[in-house]
Design a protein around this nucleic acid. Structure first.
Lengths: 207, 207, 207, 207
DNA sequence: GATGAATGAGCTTTCATTCAT
DNA sequence: AATGAATGAAAGCTCATTCAT
């Protein structure tokens, strides 16, 4: 268990951003959650935005690293696709705490805040890069599967990617119009895994 | 072309909330967008939160009203399900402007802001009500289709609902981890309609 | 019963100023109380301050007019003094409504508001004039009574005036450090009259 | 000379509240007077209302503490009564600055402002408690003096209390219908002390 | 490294006042 | 005379950020 202050703050930020949303999250609360002073937060992170970007970047890097690993272990694009979407479930559903990630991902980046400093701009670009990498991984797999006639070519790859992405995210974070309240979802982690695989398989069928 | 100030402000709010997110949106900018004074915004809407709730409530009411209408025209739950998800596309994709709705829905309701006044509480309850109504409409159709063996019973209704909802929303608003930037999506309104129908049909297959 | 709009607004202002205090009183509430539009308030009264000054000026003029009348009916300064302080009780205690006056008098004039317009400046001067007239009436009576050895000369006239004034006001409006809450006072209008007379008489004794 | 910021702000608040009245006082001016930023005012005091309540509570506590002390030193209720009213004079007239207290006391608590937070509610209750204590101290002394036949029983205790209170306050803060302007009062601190004692003695006489 | 008092820009909201009708 | 929508100047308050210790 890492307890160095940076990690403490980082984890506190994930929790508070998830609970309150970026805007309503305050440095004061993050600091309190991390049992650290407000000043120290700014000692390790340039700004609140820097904290958010760090959190997102870290998540995407994990995803991509894990995916890279998995893709080396199979040649079948359909299998690979399943593996990629399982990565989300693994990261998000393995520990209850991790669902915080999902909430942060759901609310995305503040649009307006023109990233003012260089650090911020670079971090934003890094995020975009990781994000694009994730898209391309998925799109490439879909195209490959289509060209091998392993999944339907009736739908554009972008369409399939959106369906898989949307389903994965909604199944994982349980959002539906983001308004569903706090109630349980009525299904388990395993149901999700199963459903995603069935969904991918459904594209594999003759249609 | 409506030009009454309430509508002007309402539409400006939709646009600004979508562009900036609720929290980053300022009354000043909404007023400016509506070409109206700050004071007038508060003359028609109790508060910024009232504006957001009004926008969401209005959208949900439209959805539910249209759905109610559509459901009276068919007995087949599968047809009805397709019709229901077409409603989103109709509302969101018919005019470019409407996509703003999608962005607002994506970011959901601020959790923490305890609805302070009575007006706000009631509006929040009304939103919850409409939201539940939408859920129930979809879940009921799914269950009915399952009991008629028109769609697979292998997946729990909640799972199917999440898949359909997630796909619909991602296809429509083009969100993917909310991070995709501003680029076009590479597919058309028609592609979306087609894809959703195919998706629903895929549940109809023997699996 | 006058029902012309000016009177309507004037009376509404008295009530609202008393209930809320000058600052918390809003034109909107005054207008509503008078069953009149906000615009009309400003048609008859230049500003909110103008309304307050009008209310105060009117009260002081009434006091002074009544006093002038009473003073012509007696040569005895002690009797006159009693009569003068009875005027307050008459004006303030005769009708329950009139106690509103008391509350307004208690909170006085906003200091800071430099009277900006000419109308306001003149009205302020008129108030000061009436106020000075009231002071002088009382001080003159006290001095006259002292020179006739009808009341003690051990106390400066200003001191006696403050004692009589403070007692009168506190007895009438029931203020004590203005914090006493809303409870009844435990005494009647008659008790007040009696007490003031006894107080004045006490100065008449050899001390 | 205390220079900690809390005290600085506290004293600035007393001055500005007295000069302008609670409602006309602005945080900006209090901050400026204290030579401190606006933010710091809210760092130490929850709100403007909190500042006012703090000021009033502090004053009442001082009064009651001093009184408690004094009452232990005498058995004679008349002597005690004189001592109690001397407390006001001591607190208010010893330094020119202190007269600000008087002005604040005169305008009392804003009625309408429902105390919104818990801190505020509790502070309000504390004020009411201290205030009641002050009332009871005075009323008890009066009743005791009456039962010992040391002061007249012809007047109800409440009446006597109002006379003493009103006289004390008017003599001290020089209010007369709150309109007296800025002119001097024409008497000294000593005159006030003397007058209050004489007033109390006058109730001691056979009447 | 670590703290938290201090800053101040920026936000929502209120409301007297104006003015087209 | 009368209305009330519309304006805009303040005001209170929040909170990311800085900096002396």
């Amino acid at each position: 268990m890492k307890t160095d202050k940076t990690t403490l703050i980082f984890n506190a930020a994930i929790k508070v951003f998830a609970d309150k949303g970026y805007q309503y999250a305050t440095i004061a609360e993050i600091a309190k959650t991390a049992a650290v002073s407000k000043g120290l937060v700014h000692f390790y992170f340039e700004s609140k935005m820097d904290l958010l970007l760090s959190v997102l970047l870290n998540f995407l890097k994990q995803i991509n690293t894990i995916n890279k690993d998995k893709l080396q272990k199979t040649d079948c694009p359909v299998t690979a696709l399943k593996a990629v979407f399982e990565t989300f479930q693994e990261l998000l559903l393995n520990e209850k705490e991790n669902l915080y990630w999902g909430k942060i991902l759901n609310s995305g980046l503040p649009d307006r805040t023109e990233m003012k400093t260089d650090t911020l701009k670079k971090k934003k670009e890094a995020i975009d890069r990781e994000n694009r990498k994730l898209f391309q991984t998925i799109d490439t797999l879909i195209k490959k599967a289509q060209s091998l006639q392993k999944i339907t070519a009736e739908l554009k790859p972008e369409i399939i990617r959106q369906i898989l992405g949307g389903s994965s995210q909604f199944l994982t974070t349980g959002m539906y119009l983001q308004l569903s309240g706090k109630g349980g979802l009525g299904y388990t982690k395993n149901d999700v895994r199963l459903a995603m695989n069935m969904l991918i398989d459904s594209f594999a069928r003759k249609r």
